[in-house]
Amino acid sequence: MNKDNDAKAVGAVAEGWKLVPVEPTEDMVIRGFESRPDPVFQPEHWDAYEQMSGCQQSAFAARLCYAAMLAAAPPAPVQPAVQGWMPIETASKDCVFRDGGHQYGPHILLSDGWSVVRGRWWEHEGGASNFLQDGGRAYFPSTWQPLPSPPTSKQKEQENG
């Protein structure tokens, strides 16, 4: 899995789950300590509570505390998705492939303002370097963007009807 896919996966949260800070906020801690049973907690529930062992009562109190802390958790920050064309100076030049004295960066979309091509950064151990479009020709882009994600099998099925 690459960094782009990892970033996309971070935003996915399964139903019944919630992203929370690694370190609880002060508000979360206070709400947890101040948690009390729900006002709907009826006297007949107190009888059951009083018959619980000390560990069961502690677990019950811990669940109340946990629920209060989750309710007080701030929403997860939204990381802006990389969209649109970015200055070529910000494109990755990290090596992802070596071939003898040649080093290549990840495939990306490149544009010189007139055309759009798939290409990557290239460096030779002798010091030469440039962006190359597929086929190995030098390309002089001014902007770039990541390649789009490939279609999922479900998307392919929908397109094929």
Rank of each mutant, 00 (worst) to 15 (best):
I88M: 04
P87S: 11
E26L: 10
G135L: 12
W122T: 00
A73V: 05
W46Q: 10
H124T: 01
H107S: 14
G101E: 15
G11V: 08
S115D: 08
W114F: 13
A81P: 03
E157M: 07
A76M: 13
V22G: 00
M1I: 04
V10P: 00
L109N: 09
S35R: 08
F140A: 07
P43D: 14
C95M: 03
P75G: 06
K8S: 11
G161Q: 08
S115C: 05
V96F: 02
Y66F: 14
Q158M: 15
G32I: 02
D94F: 09
V78W: 00
Q145F: 05
K154M: 10
I30N: 07
P151W: 10
A62I: 04
E15K: 15
N2I: 06
S53I: 04
G16M: 05
G136C: 06
M28V: 00
P148M: 04
H102G: 07
S149V: 07
R118I: 11
G54R: 06
V13I: 14
W17T: 03
A59H: 07
P106C: 02
K156H: 06
G161N: 11
G136W: 10
P148Q: 04
M1H: 12
A7K: 12
N5Q: 13
N160I: 05
G136L: 03
M52S: 06
D94K: 14
A128H: 12
A91N: 02
V10C: 06
G11S: 14
E125R: 13
A12M: 11
G113N: 05
S149C: 05
P21G: 00
V22M: 04
N2C: 09
A61K: 05
A128S: 13
S142A: 15
D134I: 10
T152V: 01
E15M: 09
S92D: 06
Y139R: 06
G16W: 08
G161E: 11
G127A: 05
R137H: 15
S111P: 04
E157F: 13
D6C: 11
W121I: 02
S115H: 10
C55W: 13
V117W: 03
V96Q: 01
F140T: 08
P141L: 02
R118K: 14
Q51I: 00
Q133N: 01
H107D: 15
P148L: 03
F131P: 01
V78K: 14
R137Q: 15
Q42R: 12
I88F: 08
G126N: 14
R31Q: 12
V40Q: 12
K154G: 09
V82T: 09
G54W: 08
W144L: 01
C55P: 00
W85K: 02
S35P: 00
A128T: 09
F140I: 02
R63K: 13
K8A: 14
M69E: 06
F97K: 11
G126T: 09
A72T: 03
G126Q: 07
M1R: 11
P39E: 14
Q83M: 06
G54A: 12
P150Y: 04
G126Y: 08
S53C: 04
K93L: 05
T152D: 10
V10I: 12
A68L: 05
V117Y: 04
Q42H: 13
A128P: 01
S115W: 05
E34W: 11
V13P: 03
D38S: 15
Q79M: 15
H124Q: 03
Q79K: 15
E125T: 10
V22N: 00
Y104N: 01
E157Q: 13
Q51T: 02
P87I: 06
Y66D: 10
